[in-house]
Design a protein around this nucleic acid. Sequence first.
DNA 1: TATGAATGAGATTTCATTCAT
DNA 2: AATGAATGAAATCTCATTCAT
Lengths: 217, 217, 217, 217
Amino acid sequence: MNLKCPVAARWQRKKEARPAEILDAALDLFVEKGFSATRMEEIARRAGVTKGTPYLYFSGKEDIFKAMINEFLLNPLGTIQETVSARSGSRADLLHELMEIWWHKVASRKAGGLCKLMIAEAANFPELTRYYHDELIQPGKNLVARIIRAGIDSGEFRDVPVDDAAEMLLAPALMTMIDQHSFLRAENGLPSSPADPLRYLHFALDMMLTGLNQPSR
Amino acid sequence: MNLKCPVAARWQRKKEARPAEILDAALDLFVEKGFSATRMEEIARRAGVTKGTPYLYFSGKEDIFKAMINEFLLNPLGTIQETVSARSGSRADLLHELMEIWWHKVASRKAGGLCKLMIAEAANFPELTRYYHDELIQPGKNLVARIIRAGIDSGEFRDVPVDDAAEMLLAPALMTMIDQHSFLRAENGLPSSPADPLRYLHFALDMMLTGLNQPSR
Amino acid sequence: MNLKCPVAARWQRKKEARPAEILDAALDLFVEKGFSATRMEEIARRAGVTKGTPYLYFSGKEDIFKAMINEFLLNPLGTIQETVSARSGSRADLLHELMEIWWHKVASRKAGGLCKLMIAEAANFPELTRYYHDELIQPGKNLVARIIRAGIDSGEFRDVPVDDAAEMLLAPALMTMIDQHSFLRAENGLPSSPADPLRYLHFALDMMLTGLNQPSR
Amino acid sequence: MNLKCPVAARWQRKKEARPAEILDAALDLFVEKGFSATRMEEIARRAGVTKGTPYLYFSGKEDIFKAMINEFLLNPLGTIQETVSARSGSRADLLHELMEIWWHKVASRKAGGLCKLMIAEAANFPELTRYYHDELIQPGKNLVARIIRAGIDSGEFRDVPVDDAAEMLLAPALMTMIDQHSFLRAENGLPSSPADPLRYLHFALDMMLTGLNQPSR
DNA sequence: TATGAATGAGATTTCATTCAT
DNA sequence: AATGAATGAAATCTCATTCAT
């Protein structure tokens, strides 16, 4: 009913590792090219397998996309949240520390590209976008908002609307992550963004805390 | 059988309007669904023509994408730059005014979605990304940086690295625009972002100027 | 985004005729090879078009299958039913006449193959099978059963269970149709079935009416 | 770490039962879904083995199909033929008896589904169809034809074309078998066919022997 | 003997693009 | 200038078959 193929079997059997390898490959490609423009066979090839293999572990392209979001987004947030709860010291120091963690655990890694990806694909995956929003974005904002609230209560910060302030504090962090995975990757890397993102982020945080205006003396 | 009225041209096929209509339609769809997921026939239908017509004005899908970027990016920036050069007063006021213009001319309009689009498609259109970067992003940053520089020179602002500061000031504005076209469109609108973006943006600008920290005395 | 193909356009534009041509082609192939073993491209080629064209008129393979059942099964039965209602004479004559019509309108034509097809695919299309049963098989049996009932009432026939009798009378007709489209088509035609099916069918009907047993004298 | 019990063979892998189990599983599935729509892995699973195992005993899907036809068609016919040769009494009684045997040995069993299957796949397996025809159908018809011939010679039956008469006598039997495996299986069982097929078959045989027409005197 | 991860030919379906009208 | 039927390259996904273990 079809052809004999005495293929030289050269593939490795590693059932355990396969799903992770496929998700890794998919992450790279989805972040780089977007969901639609990424071809399944490309994912397979980058994972070192052939066309059919991803379908042994995932029901299709969309399933890979969803699994990837789950895989690379929950753990990091969990880690960050634990870190924060166990911390004392000034709120300003805590915010700096938080950003440090976030940079090293998320933004500078491949998972950081997921942020860009969700922005790009939000309208095409409404239910996933809601999930991403409810489980990641909102908790992240709440985390920062709680710290600001505590700072206001302790007299460290001025009395400001905490949600807006949290939004503002997060903006440079998110934009940096987006830059990393859009403009910096394009072709040979555009000189748009700060050369040392982490240093920039600490600077921006400092600025937002102390203000750009000259102290009134 | 031929009913052609020999009197005069009956209704003018508005031929010179066609390309603009097609680009308008493409803008909506590309922003909403991304480049790959947008079908040519959908663009045509939304523009009120049929499948073949776009090919009379553009050589293909990619050409429409490029033409669209050109069409919707140059004029707004031009306007903003003119406004700025003609202005006097405090730098803080100027920045507020700038943001007001930018919001009404760009971010709150359909063209604002192009920002999200370029983020998503950056890797798929490297040469276009470079163009977008060189003609829009870098000039925008430079504009803000020059204002900050002037403020420092006049003693209004503290002495800080102007490029980083410009980057920081722009971050909330860009993030708000992204929110408008990603999470707010998804499904029924996620409550993620500030209800009144423009108010939030003025708040964030104020915060960055005066600082979150309690004045020490 | 893809290749230029300056194909010598040699196809005819006939929107009106296309669906019927495609259903004709599909009928041939489905009857010959079954549903699964028939490839869409084969249907297209036999209809004189290319791969993509059937999808302009039908949503997929299953849709073609269903449309085909609808197209080729309802009209013939309608015709037969009209004929019968307008007829008088002995019930035996009516049954012979009925079979004649049925043979020329259904069994000897391509549509006859649908019977075999539905038998083969019954389990794979349960809802369609129910429809086929309710709209075709059951009405056909009822039609014959009513004639037998009338014959019994008029004293022409013995008093027998009409449903079983109808079933019996139909069996040779159905088996002949199946033979036509299974064994007779296979390879070079197997000598299994009667050389002249219509003559056989009249013979079988006569036999069933008069009985094989020697009259008891 | 090696727990192999050195005592004796613990449980015998019932190797000689494997092929039969696989053919049994294949029979169920082929009859239900047809050849193409039946997946090899399903056959394996229903036989209680895994994907690769059937290939240890058969060279492929087509080979299983052929082996199955061989397995389930020869023995039953042999039995019937022996029975007939050893019988005396009226030809009518013999025909009733024959049908009884045939019903219990073939039609009411899984093997009855093979008839439907061969009808569906006739064109896809021409050589097998010829085999099926030559070894089963033709002998079956000949068997009945010889009985009729004997009945005519003995004066029990009227003088009729024996081949056509045999064909007619077999038609209800074959149709019943088809019904069993097509319409009765679909969904929840369609009320099309007689509730008690065996009773119906005896009735139909009686009818064909005595005739539907009222005895003229 | 049996397993089942992996393969890859091939099927279905989509859609950017062409071109006769 | 505009249409839209038709094309056909290419994508997604299936599944019969292989073969290292």
